[in-house]
């Protein structure tokens, strides 16, 4: 599972690298975050927080699943 995720990330990264023939990825990201009067960075920050909360939710769920299995056995 983990290796698949890492592989997907690598493939995505290489796509971004190919897209950025002239400017660096970092510079492109900088430009896009500045869009709409720097509003894009607020959206990105909020998305990161949501992702963080989803990961937390997922981890809690996994704990409960493990506990359920233990109780069953």
């Amino acid at each position: 599972m983990k290796s698949k995720i890492i592989l997907t990330c690598l493939v995505l990264c290489s796509f971004i690298e190919l897209q950025a023939a002239n400017t660096s990825v970092d510079e492109q990201l900088y430009q896009s975050l500045h869009g709409h009067g720097s509003m894009n960075v607020v959206v990105a920050v909020f998305a990161i927080i949501l992702i963080g909360l989803f990961i937390t939710l997922y981890r809690i769920e996994r704990k409960i699943t493990r506990l359920e299995k233990e109780i069953k056995n």
Binding site: V41, V45, I48, I49
Partner: peptide, 18 residues
Amino acid sequence: LVFGILGLITGSLWARVT
């Protein structure tokens, strides 16, 4: 720690822009 890590990542992004 979850909130600390989120604070670091979001802060890093904001720092890149400002």
